[in-house]
């Protein structure tokens, strides 16, 4: 069994070794100074004399230096670590799980990097917890709305409006699907798989043609614009396809019936989705993806979650989601 390293033990050991080495060196120096040899210690008197000399001039000084040194060091170490022990106790005794920071004002310089790393970690945990909470609140809010509508409809009388119920169930299913996708994307980001090179045109055609029946069923058209020079992009294919599907879904919702959603590649490593909505200003995109926007945002139900997913997927590819409101385009930009 390996013992846990202890600073006290190591210091005592180090100082003992120093004492032994120092003593030997001093003895050698004494022997050299007095030109003594082994022969000179032959008689009993001579040996006793030599021992007395060594004890006076070597043993005593070494002991006098080393023993206080060991004691002082132990005390200093204990004092310094008491500060850490105290803050450990404060941490474990503090009931609040939020906003906890270690007080580093009294901390010795040497442990500051560690303490500030811990404080930084605590801050990040706080941030993550806060984000998680507001996210859960958003989701609850988004689920409550369709539930309320359905409950109202069911209470309304003998003939609930089936189409309303169906639409609300569909919107909840979509939300759940997006939540599932978000957890998948997060899991992917936590343990990233190696990216593979895929031709952009093929990827977009595949994802778009899988989406098109939905658009046709909703009386919208979908068109694809091929990029002249086909480029390959290092990516996680299914993730990019999901991102594109979210953009298409979003575009479909803000395009009026009979309108066309145009999707295409290029120029370069870019995928664009053009809709017939009002165009999304960059600051609004920012608000939407930081999950500030709730159900009743102008982008329609669930747009926030969808666009947040796209942004995350693009970030995992070192790319980004950009908006060009004048062209009514949302663009997935991959790094060159």
């Amino acid at each position: 069994m390996s013992r846990r390293p202890s600073i006290n033990r190591r210091l005592s050991l180090g100082l003992s070794i120093t004492a032994i080495l120092g003593t030997s060196l001093l003895l050698t120096a004494v022997f050299a100074e007095y030109r003594l040899g082994i022969r000179d210690l032959a008689g009993t008197d001579a040996l006793r004399f030599a021992w007395a000399e060594v004890a006076d001039h070597v043993g005593m000084p070494v002991l006098l230096l080393i023993v206080p040194a060991i004691l002082t060091v132990r005390i200093v170490i204990q004092r310094s670590y008491r500060l850490l022990e105290n803050s450990a106790r404060v941490i474990s005794e503090t009931p609040a799980t939020r906003g906890l920071q270690i007080d580093d004002r009294a901390m010795p310089v040497e442990v500051l990097p560690f303490v500030s790393a811990i404080n930084d970690l605590l801050k990040r945990l706080d941030h993550a917890a806060k984000e998680h909470e507001s996210f859960a609140a958003d989701v609850a809010h988004q689920i409550r709305t369709p539930l309320a509508i359905m409950a109202l409809n069911l209470d309304h009388g003998a003939n609930p409006d089936i189409s309303v119920l169906r639409a609300e169930v569909a919107s909840m299913s979509r939300l759940v699907e997006q939540l599932l996708l978000l957890t998948q994307v997060n899991a992917q980001a936590a343990a990233p798989a190696p990216l593979e090179s895929h031709p952009l045109n093929d990827l977009v055609i595949d994802a778009t043609s899988r989406f098109a029946p939905l658009a046709v069923a909703a009386s919208r058209k979908v068109a694809f614009e091929e990029c002249a020079a086909d480029v390959a992009v290092a990516c996680h294919k299914e993730a990019v396809a999901s991102a594109l599907r979210n953009l298409l879904d979003n575009a479909l919702r803000i395009t009026p019936e009979g309108g066309t959603v145009v999707v295409g590649c290029g120029p370069g490593k870019r995928i664009f989705v053009r809709d017939e909505g009002p165009g999304l200003p960059p600051d609004q995109l920012q608000t939407i993806i930081t999950r500030q926007a709730r159900t009743d945002s102008s982008q329609g139900k669930g747009a926030g979650l969808g666009l947040a997913i796209v942004t995350r997927i693009m970030a995992a590819h070192d790319g980004q989601l950009q908006t060009f409101p004048e062209k009514r385009e949302l663009v997935m930009v991959f790094p060159d």
């Binding site: 639409a167 919107s171 046709v216 058209k221 979908v222 694809f224």
Partner: peptide
């Protein structure tokens, strides 16, 4: 029969519910 410009064609499988979106 729907033309999807740049993609291909689609034959409707089931009667369409006008303009419905999930």
């Amino acid at each position: 029969i729907h033309t999807l410009r740049g993609l291909g064609y689609l034959l409707e499988d089931a009667p369409r519910k006008q303009g419905t979106l999930p």
